[in-house]
Design a protein around this nucleic acid. Sequence first.
DNA 1: CAAACATATTGACAAACTTCTATTCGACCC
DNA 2: GGGTCGAATAGAAGTTTGTCAATATGTTTG
Lengths: 119, 119
Amino acid sequence: MERIYQETAGKLKALSDPKRLKIVDMLSCGEMCACVILESFHITQPTLSHDMRVLLEAGLVRDRREGKNTYYSLNREALDALRAVLGQMFQDKPDCICRLAEQACREGKEGEQGHDRST
Amino acid sequence: MERIYQETAGKLKALSDPKRLKIVDMLSCGEMCACVILESFHITQPTLSHDMRVLLEAGLVRDRREGKNTYYSLNREALDALRAVLGQMFQDKPDCICRLAEQACREGKEGEQGHDRST
DNA sequence: CAAACATATTGACAAACTTCTATTCGACCC
DNA sequence: GGGTCGAATAGAAGTTTGTCAATATGTTTG
């Protein structure tokens, strides 16, 4: 139940950098060589390599070696799934976590024991 | 042009924490008192206060004082807008930034000058 | 094989983030 | 007014992140 927050937060963290967001945008219409991506930024090659690794480890992009070059592309399923999860979290819904919390709170006011204090 | 990455990344960063993501989920069906939110976590009150401020400053939630209590609620427009921006960035589109980059790259191969090296 | 090239890895350092304790602020109640 | 309660702020410690220079790895080419 809590794992979804952990995983989703991890993916959002990978995207929470203007550079990486722009990279995703650049990849959105097809795969691209690292060297081309690099030319769009004022960063060194190791920095780009690090950023690509962050996106890879979050599962948001894929890589493909071809000779000397590395080509990156979006993992569209993962990105769409991420957006779907966010939609779920932002929207009202009958089994919302908040109702459980409110219920626990009411029970707490009466009995004062056993809240679900999971992180 | 680059500002959208900066702003979007900032909002994603606010959401890139499991706690804050869970808080947004909790608020998704209505406003909630800080004291109730606090009961759902193993954190101190100042920590929650800090997290709520992060969400507030990102423009993702609103606050309302009522006597001693503070009630928080989602800024649904901002959250929906965020999701829409992500949709744009994840999807293919004819005026995609990647095409501009590729074009700049091709021109560079021929003339070797004047790339758009904006961050 | 040696040189050149595209990436990845390592190590270092500063900036930013997370979380806590202690304290302050504001509102309510006797 | 003094005490209490909920929340915000300040300050500090520990952790993580972003970035670079230097170096290593792997691939192609002469």
